[in-house]
Design a protein around this nucleic acid. Structure first.
Lengths: 90, 90
DNA sequence: CACATTATATTGGATGTCCGATATATATAA
DNA sequence: TTATATATATCGGACATCCAATATAATGTG
């Protein structure tokens, strides 16, 4: 998986399915800067290629959601993340 | 500042001053892998060059601790980190 | 002293991460 | 149809991140 960006995307999609621009806007809120198209779409492609996302295309928008494989990967990544940053967030 | 490694090092040193090997061992607990010398020492040097750390050399061991500038940088980084990963850690 | 151990330091490079620029496709408006 | 806006996609490359290998220095042990 890609680094923390991929992790965040998985996390966001676990809350609710979204298309690329929605994800980018949500990332903008959290990070302060909206990721460029050259960042978000390759990240989505990478997660899709790993089998973590499925697509639902309607017109020009593609809604992504987690596959069960993606859910498992997220749980594992969450555990590692939590252990690594234990105590950092109170 | 370096990425999350530098952030973690600042956080660990805010708990208590440590020397390089202690930091590496603490990182090993959290991440599962001990960072190589080529990772930890450049990271410490970088943080020192930024004025975030001060050194206390005794024999061959160098104990690092946060400067007040480092404490401020840590607080800022913590806020950003918390906002970015809000909800990821329950 | 000779040897091993521990801590620190540096360098070169492999890989990862991400962006800017650009392109394609669909939808909407005039 | 032409123009505009929106969403997705790709490519090249800049930069960051990190490691393996190696080196230096101090300490401990026989």
């Amino acid at each position: 998986m890609r680094g923390l960006l991929g992790f965040l995307v998985l996390f966001l999609l676990s809350k609710k399915p979204m298309h690329g621009q929605e994800i980018a806007n949500e990332l903008a809120k959290r990070r302060g800067e909206k990721p460029s198209p050259g960042t978000i779409y390759p990240a989505l492609k990478s997660l899709k290629d790993l089998g973590f996302l499925s697509e639902d295309k309607e017109g020009k928008t593609i809604t992504y959601k987690l596959t069960s494989k993606g859910e498992k990967a997220l749980e594992i990544a969450k555990k590692r993340f939590t252990r690594t940053f234990l105590g950092v967030i109170k």
